[in-house]
Computed example of a mutant assay.
Amino acid sequence: MGVVRVVVLVLAFGIGMIAHFSQVKGSVKKGFRGFVQSLYFAVVTITTVGYEDYFPNTSTSKWLMVLVSVVLANPSMCIIDKIIGKLISRIVSKSRFYQRPRQYQIGSMTFCTFILVVIIGPAVIHLLEVKHMNYAEVYYLNAISLMTVGYDDFAFKSTGRQIFASFYLLFGPLLVVQYLEFVTNLRTTVTRRQGSYSSWSSSSSGSRDKKPTRSNTRCAVKSNGSIGKDWHHNDRHKN
């Protein structure tokens, strides 16, 4: 990760935390709990969730949050998204994920996303909020958090909940976006292959007597690997 990216992340989270501490005295806790609150406040702002449980109430904190929201929030999320993408790429490359069948790829990614969205997130929220929320409210809070909606009816109040939310809000929505991008890119790749195959088959059907040569075999390989291999095999068999 480059120096510029590190500086952007440090500025975004640092200024967000300073803005929290620069609020009216008495509204900010001290010590470790105050640190967790400031980090939670910065994450909620940078991820654009905005539960409205904390908000700037002084001129200084408001000007600082203008700087974070307008200048630093979007670049910070882009940097974190790239970091997550690189980590996923390394894991995928070691497991030879992209060499497996397309159905296996979609099923595996869907299963992992399902575990995160439907089981892990709601389970932790339920454990932390078991005395205050029913199951509908747990899944409701999980959904508005991952989709960065963030109403002001539910939020994470205690120190433990805010520690969990600081990481969950930062990485959960980006993992969902990574999954959606994966499915979209996979469908786009399949559509392009089908389109190239259709264009090749329509152009080759116009000349029935045309025999496969090395040149059109190479074209077939570029458009569809299996066709190219079949032509090359037939050409060798005839010779």
Rank of each mutant, 00 (worst) to 15 (best):
F111Q: 10
G50R: 07
S204T: 10
Q105S: 12
L128I: 06
I83A: 11
L11G: 05
R193K: 14
F32S: 14
R100F: 00
G16Q: 04
D235K: 15
Y51A: 04
F182A: 10
G85L: 01
G160A: 13
Y98L: 07
A42T: 05
L9Q: 05
R192Y: 12
P212V: 09
R96L: 08
G26N: 11
L180H: 09
F182T: 04
F156T: 02
Y139P: 00
S69E: 03
H20F: 06
N134Q: 11
V28P: 07
C219W: 03
L67W: 06
K62S: 13
K131V: 02
W231T: 05
I88W: 09
V221F: 12
W231Y: 09
K25D: 13
S95G: 12
G121R: 00
V92A: 15
F41A: 07
A42K: 02
T148C: 12
G14C: 08
K86C: 09
R218Q: 06
I119L: 08
C112E: 04
L141S: 03
V49A: 04
I46E: 00
T110C: 08
F21K: 10
S198P: 07
S202Y: 10
I163H: 06
K86W: 08
V49Y: 03
F182L: 11
S199F: 07
V149R: 08
I106M: 13
D209K: 13
W200G: 02
Y139Q: 03
V66C: 07
T148H: 12
V183D: 08
I125N: 01
I15K: 07
K30G: 15
S226A: 14
E52F: 15
A123I: 00
Y51N: 02
V138C: 06
D209H: 14
H237T: 12
T188G: 13
G228E: 01
G206M: 10
L180A: 14
H20T: 07
N216H: 04
F41M: 03
R208P: 12
A155T: 09
T184P: 05
K229S: 08
Y54P: 03
S95Q: 14
L175M: 15
N234R: 14
V44M: 04
P122L: 00
V6C: 14
Y51R: 01
A155R: 00
G228M: 02
A136L: 03
Y40L: 00
S215P: 03
K229Y: 09
N224T: 09
M17R: 04
Y197K: 14
F167D: 05
V177H: 08
G206D: 09
I79R: 06
G2W: 04
W200V: 01
D230F: 13
K229N: 10
R5W: 07
V70D: 03
V66H: 12
K82G: 10
G150Y: 02
L9E: 02
L180I: 11
N57A: 03
Q162F: 00
R33E: 14
L128H: 01
L64V: 03
G34F: 05
K94E: 05
H232Q: 10
H126I: 00
I83F: 08
T58R: 06
L116C: 04
L39G: 03
R5F: 02
R214E: 05
S89C: 11
V10D: 05
S204H: 13
S198R: 14
V8F: 08
G85N: 12
N234E: 05
L87A: 14
A165N: 08
G107K: 06
S89R: 14
A42D: 02
M65I: 12
H132T: 15
D209F: 14
L9H: 09
S38A: 15
P101W: 07
